[in-house]
């Protein structure tokens, strides 16, 4: 199993406060890696560091390395925009643009300079199919994306991220604002997406992590406590803190 992303001794600071403390993690290609841990433990921070989204917040500082296909994404010559084109992101709350469904999906291609209408149309279709949304929206591609339901909006955001043809998808609690049915659809979607993409999934639901991830990592107070294949982590955690957390969760 080759590592798509490797972090080495990665620490992230908000001003003086460390939100991540020396995280070293290897994220295997075309697998789902789940990040679990109590809220505020640094899961989102970790995710945002992986595609340099953290640079948008003020006063954030990072030490350590993140390697994408063996290349350090913080090296001076690396353009963060190129990193983000390879490492896409789906946010906790769906955030479609106030544009048509079509324009939402085509956005990433357009900003990358694609003008060819036929290419755009094909890609929009493929991306919506990949996000299992095509059948629901194919007759109203030019209506506003804001008219979709919450679950549809989130799948649209997945389609939008996929359209850029990234290699990695970062998903920050993508189903936490959705009802159970929409959640199930997103989970199905993630399982199919891992055939082509490396996925890092933050989730607060132990069941979800269990159902769909291949590897799970437990973060606590900014530290990576334990990483293991999902089953192993849930069945026989080695670290006492992991055990406690899982036990507390399952009551």
């Amino acid at each position: 199993m080759t590592a798509k992303i490797e972090t080495r001794d990665l620490s992230t600071y908000y001003r003086e406060k460390a939100a991540l403390k020396g995280v070293t993690l290897s994220i295997p290609e075309r697998r789902v890696t789940a990040l679990i841990g109590p809220s505020g433990c640094g899961k989102s921070t970790f995710l945002r560091t992986l595609n340099r989204m953290h640079e948008l917040s003020e006063g954030v500082r990072v030490t350590g390395q993140v390697y994408l296909d063996g290349e350090d994404i913080f090296a001076p010559h690396v353009d963060p925009v190129e990193v983000r084109r390879k490492v896409g992101m789906v946010f906790q709350r769906s955030n479609p643009f106030p544009k048509s469904i079509f324009e939402n999906v085509a956005y990433g291609l357009r900003v990358a300079g694609e003008r060819d209408r036929a290419v755009l149309e094909r890609c929009v279709r493929e991306s919506l199919e990949a996000a299992a949304l095509w059948d629901e929206v194919k007759d109203r591609l030019h209506e506003s994306a804001l008219e979709l339901s919450g679950g549809q909006q989130q799948r649209l955001c997945v389609a939008r991220a996929v359209a850029v043809r990234p290699e990695v998808l970062l998903m920050d609690e993508p189903a936490s604002a959705l009802d159970p049915i929409a959640t199930a659809r997103i989970e199905e979607l993630i399982v199919t997406l891992k055939e082509k993409y490396t996925i890092v999934l933050v989730t607060h639901s132990m069941q979800e992590a269990r159902r769909i991830s291949d590897q799970a990592a437990f973060l606590y107070l900014g530290e990576m406590i334990e990483v293991a294949p999902t089953l192993e982590l849930f069945e026989s955690p080695r670290e006492p803190r992991t055990q406690e957390y899982l036990r507390g969760r399952f009551g």
């Binding site: 989204m53 925009v81 896409g88 956005y107 900003v111 955001c157």
Partner: peptide, 8 residues
Amino acid sequence: EASLALGA
């Protein structure tokens, strides 16, 4: 954020 995450 959505826009920047898409590589804009």
